[in-house]
C-alpha cells in the first residue's frame, strides 16, 4: 500500500544542509498497524508528511496506494490527500466554528465521498452520539481526539496517519484513543502512528524506529505485540 524507496529529505544547502530523512526504504501493507518511533528530530513527522503528500522528498520515490507522489503535480497531491490519506493530529485541529458532527461531515464533503457511513454513524462508531452537536470547545480533550479520528475515518481513505495522537491526553484517555486507532487497521486500510512513546509502540503490529533520519530497526515490537490494556506510561 505504501512504498518508500531511498527517500531522502534534506533542508538547506551546502555545509548547512540537514537531512531529516536519509535514504529510507520501507513498504507498508494494508491491514498493518505501524508505529513510527523515534526521539524528537529523528525524522518521524517528516516521514509522515511525505506519506501524507504534505511534503515531497528531495530524492527517492514514494508510492501511496499505487500512485507515485514524488512526481505528482500540486493538484494530484491535493487529490491524494482527499482520496487516499487521512490525518489525525496531536492538537486535534478541529474546526472551532463547526460542531462535532459538522467537523466529521466537513471531511466527507472534502473528499467528495458519496454513500458510505454518515457523519452520525461514524461518530457513533467512536462513541460520540450524544456530543454530536457540541462545539469543540465544549468537549474534553479525549472527546475532541475521538472527533478527529471520526473525521479521518469518515473519508473512508485507506491510509490513516496519526501524529502523536495521544500527546495531549492523559494516560487513560490516551489508551482509549490508541485502542480505537488499533481497531481501524484491517482489510483495505493501514494505520501509521508516529510517536516517541515506546509504550505505544508495544501495541503495534510493526515498529519502524528512526534515528537521525535513518531506520535503525524495522519489525514487530520487542517482546511481541502487547494488549493495549497492558500499556502504561
Amino acid at each position: 500500500m505504501i512504498e518508500l524507496e531511498h527517500v531522502t529529505r534534506a533542508y538547506g544547502e551546502g555545509p548547512h544542509q540537514v537531512r531529516a530523512l536519509d535514504d529510507i526504504s520501507a513498504t507498508i501493507a494494508e491491514g498493518e498497524f505501524v508505529v513510527v518511533l523515534g526521539p524528537s528530530g529523528s525524522g518521524k513527522t517528516t516521514l509522515l508528511n511525505i506519506i501524507g503528500a504534505l511534503d515531497t522528498p528531495t530524492s527517492g520515490t514514494v508510492r501511496v496506494a499505487g500512485q507515485d507522489i514524488t512526481t505528482a503535480s500540486r493538484g494530484q497531491l491535493f487529490a491524494v490527500r482527499r482520496r487516499t490519506v487521512s490525518f489525525i493530529f496531536q492538537g486535534f485541529n478541529l474546526f472551532p466554528g463547526l460542531t462535532a458532527r459538522e467537523n466529521v461531515q466537513f471531511a466527507i464533503d472534502a473528499c467528495g465521498r458519496k454513500g458510505g457511513a454518515s457523519a452520525d454513524e461514524v461518530l457513533e462508531s467512536v462513541g460520540l452520539t450524544v456530543q454530536a452537536r457540541q462545539f469543540p470547545h465544549q468537549l474534553s480533550g479525549g472527546e475532541q481526539q475521538r472527533v478527529a479520528i471520526a473525521r479521518a475515518l469518515a473519508t473512508g481513505n485507506p491510509v490513516l496517519l496519526a501524529d502523536e495522537p495521544t500527546g495531549e491526553l492523559d494516560f487513560q484517555t490516551g489508551v482509549r484513543i490508541l485502542e480505537l486507532l488499533q481497531k481501524q487497521s484491517g482489510p483495505g486500510r493501514a494505520v501509521i502512528v508516529v510517536t516517541h512513546n515506546r509504550q505505544i509502540a508495544r501495541a503495534a503490529d510493526r515498529v519502524i524506529e528512526l534515528s537521525s533520519g535513518r531506520i535503525s530497526s524495522d519489525g514487530p515490537p520487542q517482546g511481541g505485540k502487547a494488549n493495549v490494556a497492558d500499556l502504561y506510561w
Binding site: 504534505l54 487529490a79 490525518f87 485541529n93 472551532p96 473528499c111 473519508t155
Partner: peptide, 13 residues
C-alpha cells in the same frame, strides 16, 4: 492558518 492547513491536509483546494 492552522484551520486552513488542516483543510489542505484533507485535500481541500
Amino acid at each position: 492558518a492552522r484551520e486552513h492547513a488542516t483543510m489542505f491536509a484533507f485535500g481541500v483546494r
